[in-house]
Amino acid sequence: MKTKTIFSSIYIAVFRGVLLVASMSATSQLYAAEEWPTDDIRLVVPYSAGGTTDVLSRKVADLLQQQGLGNVIVENRPGAGSTMATGRLARGGRGSDHTILMASPGHAIGAAIYPGLRYDPVEDFTFIQNIIDIPNVMVVPADSPYDSVEAFVEAARKNEMTFSSSGVGSSIHMSGELFKNLTKTNLTHVPYRGSGEALPALLSGDVDVSFDNMPAVLSHIKSDGLKALAVTTPERSKYLPDVPTLQEVGKYNLDEFATSAWFGLITHNSFPQAGVDKLNAALEKVMQSEEFDSFISQLGAAPGKQSGEEFKAFIADEVARWKQTASEAGISN
């Protein structure tokens, strides 16, 4: 048969071509244990290109490469919040000793609201380092009659009010639900698809309040398009030094209110310890670099302070808290 010879000749040719390339990486694989990395590092972004997580990851990958860790390839694997990519990471398998993932609030919130996850958001992963924290800001439209958190809460206890978010299960949404639960106010959630759609609703006054991420609203606060009532982190932000924290309000059960959009690297449990150490060392240098500093100041972010262990404990707390918030808001599954 003619086709048979075609097949075999094709196979041989493909084998040769592929083997040539494979041999380059195969030789180095022998030293796997001490020598790390022995291959390109893959940084998985569990969201599509263009969002904050993606932009941050690409910057971090770029900076890590400058630390001499070899190629760091960013791979977008969006789907089901961030749980698709995370679930895949949890399964491990081929290449998992060179795969790291940029985790964000979706990691904890996803675990709280997605039905039947097949992984444990805390125990199934090794936590490398918390990289940055972006505060959320409680903002109201410029012509809103409320100038303080107190005035807003008092009004929202009497009247129906709305808050916008970038979607169900976003840190913006969950911050709003948490606020609603703690302050016992009549807030209705109005979901949009992405921050880009949510912001106009707030600017035009269609919704009354939002707990949006700092980078999205900072320039509108400065240009008086929006009024900032409070930041959601325990400490004031250096970018908005005049804006109080929610904890400072000291009433309405807000004294423990602390949310932020945190970002950090996690990996599969089988990731070699040598790799974790090297990544930590490289990240430390990255986070002290001026380039990193000017980049995160653009995001209105603060550098992450938690080491791997602290980060893990923090996420365990986050998961528990969002589970409770989600079930009180009626969105848990």
Partner: peptide, 24 residues
């Protein structure tokens, strides 16, 4: 500073990487 579609969302990301925030 509002991206109308996916592509402009990515371009917004590029602005931010370069230390610029589109908007007023």
């Amino acid at each position: 500073g509002i991206p109308g579609d996916v592509i402009t969302a990515i371009i917004l990301g590029a602005f931010m990487i370069h230390g610029l925030t589109p908007g007023p």
